[in-house]
Design a binder for these strands. Structure first.
Lengths: 234, 234
DNA sequence: CTACGGCTGTGTTCCTCGTCACATTCCAGG
DNA sequence: CCTGGAATGTGACGAGGAACACAGCCGTAG
C-alpha cells in the first residue's frame, strides 16, 4: 500500500502487467483496462463481496491480503485460499453468470481493482487469448482443490498444518521461512485446514517443541523446512 | 452399450449432440467431430489413462461408467467423481498442457470417444463459443470440488455417505431412488467419501436399520429421501 | 492507567472412526 | 458342482480430535 492514490492508473497498470492473465492484452490493452475499472481501498476485516451475491465484476488484488471464505448452510466456514498482491478473484461467477460461490474478506488493509463484467467480455472478444488464460487459471484452481480434498481425506491435522505453513511461506512469506501475517489468527489457520482452533494451537505447540517452527506473536518462522515437508506428506 | 459398432458415426454424433459442450458446434460440426475422433470399447476395470501421463486427447463417455481416481504420493486413492453417459473427461490436461491430474478407471464396460488435442484446438478456433463452454464446465467443477472439501471438513461419515447416495441416485440412478451399480463396491464408496471400507459398511447398516435405505446385493434403494437429505446436511 | 474484548494456551471428556482380525457370503471358472 | 478369491458383515481396541471450559495475555479505547 505504497501510498498510491486510489486511482493512480500507472500504479494499477504496473500491477496488472505483472499478472499472466492480463499480459496477453499488451501494453496498451493493460492501460485502457486500468482506466476501465475502479480501484478501492478496504480496511482490515471488511467484506468485498458475499457468497450468493450476483457477480458483476472481476477483481484484482493490487495490494493487501484477503481470505476466500466458503460458508455452509449451517454457518460453518472454511477458508479456501489466501490471496495476495496480483491475485485475481471473482472470475467464476462472471464466467458462467452464477452467484458468487464464496465470500471475500480482507485479512488486512487491501487495495482492490474491480473490472466490470461488460468490459471483461469486451476484452475477451478483442483478445481471444484471454479465454485461454482463464482456462489455465481455472485448471490450476481445480488442481489445488483436488489436492485440498485429498489432504482432508488422508492427512492428519498436524500434517495439514505443516503443509499449510509451507504454502503460506512460499506464497506470502517475507524472507525465507518467515510467515508474518497480521490479520491471520489461529482461528483462520483452523478454518484453512478444516480443524478446530484449540487443535491448531496444540499442533503449533507440538511443532514448536520439536523445533520445526518458532512462533512469536503472530509471526511464524519455519526452522526446519525439510522436516515440515516430511510431516506434510511431501 | 446397445450393440453399436465402435465407429458408428451416427451413434457417436447422437450422444455428442446431447452434450452442451458440443451443441455449440452445430449439426455439421458435430458430425465432422464424430469422424475426427476415435471410439473405443473398454472392459470393466480397465484404465483409460493414468495420472501423470501427458494429455493428448479429450474424452467423451458414450456409454458406461468410469471412476475419476486421484492417487497421492503414498498410494492412497480418493475417487473424485463417477462419470456416466455423456460426461467428458481429460479436459484439464489438454487446456493447459500439464500432465493428467487423475486416472480414469472403468467401473463397468464402457464406450469411449477420444478427440485428439490438435482437432480440439482447431474446433476452438473455429467456434469461439466452445471456450465459453469449457469455462462453464470448469467453473462447475470448481464448485463441486469446494463442496466436496466442505463436506470432508464438516460432515461426519454418515452425512457424507447419505449425501453421496443422493447424488449417485440423482445422476446415475434408474427409477426413482434406485442406485444400481455393478462395478461399484463398498470400497469405492469409501474412496468417494474419504473413509475406510468397514466404516462405510457400518454406516450403510445404520441407514438400513433406520429404514432410510435398502441394500440388496450391489443395489441400493433410497427409501426416505427427505431423511437422507437431512442426514447429509441439506 | 485501567478495563474490556479478542486472541492464545491448556485441561478434561467423550465419541467417531481407523486399524486389525475374522467369519460369512457371493460369484466365476474349473 | 466344487472351490478359491473377492466383497461383505462384525467385533475389539485405541488414537485423534471435537466440544466445552476457563485461565493468562495483549492491545486498544476510554
Amino acid at each position: 500500500m505504497n501510498g498510491h492514490l486510489p486511482h493512480d492508473v500507472g500504479a494499477i497498470a504496473a500491477v496488472l502487467s505483472g499478472i499472466p492473465l492480463f499480459r496477453v492484452l499488451g501494453e496498451s490493452g493493460i492501460r485502457s483496462t486500468a482506466q476501465a475499472g475502479l480501484a478501492r481501498r478496504y480496511r482490515s476485516g471488511q467484506i468485498i463481496f458475499h457468497q450468493g451475491d450476483p457477480g458483476e465484476s472481476l477483481y484484482v488484488l493490487l495490494d493487501g491480503l484477503v481470505k476466500v471464505v466458503f460458508t455452509t448452510e449451517h454457518g460453518d466456514e472454511i477458508v479456501l485460499n489466501m490471496l495476495g498482491r496480483g491475485d485475481t478473484f471473482g472470475e467464476m461467477a462472471l464466467l458462467d453468470g452464477s452467484p458468487r460461490s464464496a465470500s471475500i474478506v480482507t485479512a488486512r488493509a487491501a487495495w482492490v481493482f474491480a473490472l466490470p463484467r461488460a468490459r471483461l467480455l469486451e476484452l475477451m472478444r478483442e483478445h481471444p487469448g484471454l479465454a485461454d488464460e482463464f482456462l489455465r487459471m481455472l485448471g490450476h484452481m481445480v488442481r489445488r482443490l483436488t489436492d485440498q480434498a485429498a489432504d482432508l481425506a488422508f492427512l492428519d491435522l498436524g500434517g495439514r498444518l505443516a503443509k499449510l505453513l509451507l504454502q503460506l511461506a512460499d506464497k506470502h512469506g517475507h524472507a525465507d521461512g518467515v510467515v508474518e501475517m497480521p490479520g491471520l489468527t489461529q482461528s483462520d489457520l483452523a478454518a484453512l485446514i478444516g480443524a478446530s482452533r484449540p487443535a491448531v494451537n496444540r499442533a503449533l505447540q507440538s511443532l514448536v517443541s520439536r523445533n520445526l517452527i518458532a512462533v512469536k506473536g503472530r509471526t511464524i518462522t519455519l526452522l526446519d523446512v525439510a522436516a515440515l515437508r516430511k510431516r506434510g506428506g511431501l
